[in-house]
């Protein structure tokens, strides 16, 4: 962590993760990869605008890229359902992952969602089942998976794209079982307790790295913090470092045999709450 960010409380991080003007999945995909071809539809019901995905090239390596896109202005936010996927979004992601498995491409997911879409249609089409299926299939997917949290990681809706070999987080991204607002209102029946809830939930990148939920943190430019930009830490620099990290990590993991890779993935999650 850089000096400037030390004083930030957990809830400050939540605010930053949701901040207006924060780059969304689309910007990262366009900056990190080349030749992104977007593929649409889950072949079952529809095409969810909250999930974008397709094939792209990472340096020279063909990869499958999936991201949750929340939109940047009011119009695009509406068009992307504010980044809350419906079941068809998760099913599209799974379809693309299966395709990646078939063609031996690594899968890279960008996670940025307040949570899965909450509505009648989503329940009718099996939101819970769609997430469950994604998690279960990802645990056995015979190709590398890296998930990068670029903003908010809301509960099961985020995990459905994050049952991965590696989970990376941007410095100001968060990942939580419930929003601090939800937690405060359920547990303490007091919406004002959000700050305490955010603290208790251990949702910052730093906390998650300590817990082993995240494997790596990327420093990011903070709006208003000039020092970082002068040090060269801008969006392009961030994307360059993500690209290099992806390349490096995938070059190593592609040498592993598939059984070892799956074993490591299983162990990665098996250790949470493991008792003697």
């Amino acid at each position: 962590m850089s000096k400037g960010a030390d004083f930030l409380s957990a809830y400050d991080r939540v605010r930053l993760a949701r901040a207006k003007g924060r780059p969304t999945a689309k910007s990262y995909i366009h900056q990190i990869f080349s030749g992104f071809i977007q593929l649409h539809g889950d072949r079952r019901f529809g095409d969810d605008p909250a999930v974008i995905g397709g094939v792209a090239v990472l340096k020279h390596m063909p990869v499958t890229v999936i991201g949750i896109e929340r939109g940047t202005d009011t119009k695009s936010k509406l068009a992307h359902h504010f980044g809350s996927p419906n079941p068809e979004g998760y099913r599209k992601a799974l379809r693309l992952m299966k395709q990646a498995e078939k063609f031996k491409r690594p899968v890279i997911c960008f996670v940025d969602t307040a949570g899965a879409y909450c509505g009648i249609g989503a329940e009718e089409r099996g939101q819970g089942q769609a997430i469950a299926e994604n998690i279960m299939e990802m645990m056995g997917l015979r190709t590398q998976i890296i998930s990068i949290f670029i903003g908010e990681g809301g509960s099961g809706g985020a995990l459905a794209l994050a049952a991965a070999d590696q989970v990376w987080m941007l410095e100001n991204a968060i990942y939580s079982v419930i929003s601090p607002e939800g937690c405060a209102s359920i547990l303490w029946k007091d919406a004002k307790q959000v700050e305490a809830a955010a603290e208790n939930l251990k949702l910052t990148a730093e906390d998650l790295l300590a817990l082993g939920v995240a494997d790596r943190i990327f420093q990011e430019p903070v709006p208003g913090e000039k020092g970082r930009r002068e040090e060269g830490l801008d969006f392009e620099y961030l994307c360059d470092s993500i690209r290099e990290a992806l390349w490096e990590s995938l070059s190593v993991s592609r040498k592993l045999d598939m059984q070892t890779l799956l074993e490591l993935r299983y162990e990665r999650f098996r250790r949470f709450g493991k008792r003697p």
Partner: peptide, 26 residues
């Protein structure tokens, strides 16, 4: 649902159990 007092570690149980179900199923 997940037990929020155990925060993210509860969420991780979804992946952990699903991994075990997958192996059992395979």
């Amino acid at each position: 649902g997940a037990r929020m007092q155990e925060g993210i570690l509860s969420l991780m149980q979804m992946a952990k159990t699903s991994g075990a179900v997958k192996r059992h199923s395979q």
